[in-house]
Simulated scan of single mutants.
Amino acid sequence: MLEWRDLQGEKVKEFQASVPFESVEAVDPKAEEAQLVLRTRQGDQNALRELVNRHRVRLIRTAANVLRDPMEAEDVAQEAFLKAFRELHRLRDDRAFASFVYRICVRLCVDRLRVKRAEPAELEPRQEAQGGSIETRMLVEKVLNQLPPDLRLTLVLREMEQMSYEEVAETMGVPVGTVRSRLHTARERFRALWNIATREEESY
């Protein structure tokens, strides 16, 4: 019977040699996704559905955070997937499908935000909030709606989606330096607009 005092010098080597070692190959998620993309290119509907299932929830959540409208977010996510699969020939690296479809989703969100900003604002009756958290959420949405699309999107991806600067840059298709600059501006404007909005709320 092997005891602790035996695990010294040559005994250690003998013990290690007697223990079977099985090599477990780690699964690379990007390589796995590249295989799904390849199969999708070949017309495999199961692979296509798997790609949708992998990214659907996050795509909808991102769109909802940007657009502040869950129903519209569903539409944008669906449109992003359709556009991504139609333009799959533009994807140079099959391992980068996630970034590819997120960039499409982000562009669609920005387009919709620009259309909304161009439309005349509709006055809605002020809702009575039941609880501070609901009131705060409504105020956050009000302030976010006043930010330009690029600043709003940068703020949402970084602060709400918790993306790194590099991930935001890749998703938006801009340099990291641009992300940092936009984020700084977005935070400053949000803070200023927030102060104005809270003062207005207090005056009611």
Score class of each variant (00 low, 15 high):
residue 99 S to W: 06
residue 168 V to S: 09
residue 163 M to W: 03
residue 45 Q to V: 11
residue 104 I to S: 09
residue 148 P to W: 05
residue 147 L to E: 07
residue 40 T to C: 11
residue 133 S to R: 14
residue 138 M to N: 14
residue 164 S to R: 09
residue 19 V to F: 11
residue 170 E to Q: 10
residue 27 V to W: 10
residue 91 L to M: 03
residue 3 E to A: 11
residue 81 F to V: 10
residue 84 A to M: 03
residue 169 A to E: 08
residue 147 L to M: 02
residue 5 R to S: 09
residue 35 Q to N: 02
residue 108 L to Q: 15
residue 72 E to R: 10
residue 54 R to L: 15
residue 162 Q to A: 03
residue 141 E to F: 03
residue 64 A to W: 05
residue 176 V to D: 13
residue 6 D to H: 09
residue 80 A to L: 12
residue 92 R to Q: 06
residue 197 A to L: 01
residue 46 N to I: 06
residue 31 A to P: 08
residue 134 I to S: 00
residue 173 G to V: 11
residue 187 R to W: 00
residue 57 V to F: 09
residue 63 A to Y: 02
residue 10 E to F: 06
residue 93 D to N: 13
residue 81 F to Q: 14
residue 100 F to V: 00
residue 58 R to D: 00
residue 180 R to N: 08
residue 67 L to F: 12
residue 172 M to C: 01
residue 167 E to Y: 03
residue 154 T to R: 12
residue 136 T to P: 00
residue 12 V to H: 07
residue 179 V to M: 03
residue 107 R to F: 11
residue 167 E to D: 05
residue 171 T to K: 00
residue 121 A to I: 10
residue 138 M to H: 11
residue 156 V to D: 14
residue 105 C to Y: 06
residue 126 R to C: 05
residue 202 E to W: 07
residue 74 E to V: 01
residue 40 T to N: 05
residue 114 R to A: 10
residue 188 E to F: 03
residue 67 L to P: 07
